[in-house]
Simulated scan of single mutants.
Amino acid sequence: MHVSSATQPNTSGTTQGSAPVLSSDFETFLKMLTAQMKNQDPLNPIESSDYATQLATFSSVEQQVLTNDLLRAVQSEIGAMGMSQLAGWVGMEAKVLAPAQFDGDSIDIATYPLSTADSAELVITDADGTEIHRFEIATDSEILQWDGTDANGDLVPHGQYSFAVQSTVDGAVVETLPAEVYSRISEARTTNNGVYLVLEGGAIVHSQDVTGLRAAD
């Protein structure tokens, strides 16, 4: 089990310092607004609606800054408390759009052909991008298994393989999309950019790219 953590950004200073900064800016804004009112042309006074617009604009910016600070604080808290939860991910299988490691066991693949397709094929390529096998699948296919054999029925070497679903309508290929696979998680990492998962075989994906989790067989 491997859960590691990179240096997290210090958001506490930003959050605590925002209020004084905004307060100071608001006071400056009021002084400028007062000066604007004093120095306006009496024959062509500024409309009250213009003042309201300026105030609303400043208020909107102020609220956005406060919201951003709050989000950073929440993200920091999640990163700090998430390590124990991440430990539970290690050893599980993640459903992700990434190459899968074949070590002799069948690989579960999520295949979703185009709904209007007449026929569909699963295309399998090796780490070099060379096609090693393709075979027809049901147009309503979802999860299926690849047993690790190539077009000749021989077992392929251990390594990473990618999968794509090719949908055909009236004999013409209309869509080719990468297919998600279930891969075992070997490590979880927290970084400044979020949580990353290292999959069996070395592929690295962001936690946000995980669309499913299940216990390993």
Rank of each mutant, 00 (worst) to 15 (best):
I143Y: 09
V61C: 07
F26S: 12
M37I: 06
L97Q: 14
T130I: 13
H158R: 08
V90K: 00
L114V: 12
E27R: 11
A56V: 12
F26H: 09
E180G: 02
A73E: 13
I204P: 01
D69G: 13
E77N: 10
S76H: 15
V21R: 07
L71C: 10
P42T: 03
S167L: 06
W146V: 04
G212D: 09
I137M: 06
T11C: 04
M81C: 05
D69F: 03
Q64G: 10
N10Q: 08
S48I: 09
R214K: 08
L114A: 15
T211R: 10
D118H: 10
E93Q: 15
G88L: 04
Q54L: 13
S119W: 00
F102C: 07
T111K: 03
P178A: 12
T67K: 13
M37N: 08
I185L: 03
Q208R: 13
D128F: 11
A172H: 05
S23D: 15
F26T: 11
W89K: 05
A52G: 12
A120L: 04
G91I: 04
V74S: 08
G202Y: 00
N39L: 14
A19S: 07
I132D: 01
F135M: 10
I78Y: 12
Q16R: 10
V61H: 14
T34D: 07
L33P: 00
E62N: 15
F29Q: 02
V210M: 03
R189S: 09
I46Q: 06
S207A: 09
E27D: 13
M92E: 05
D41Q: 07
I185Y: 01
D170Y: 08
Q208S: 09
Q36I: 05
D50E: 14
I137S: 04
A127P: 03
S76Y: 13
A100C: 14
A52N: 08
T111L: 15
L66N: 15
T190K: 02
V210L: 04
P45Y: 06
L30K: 12
Y196M: 14
P99R: 06
E27N: 11
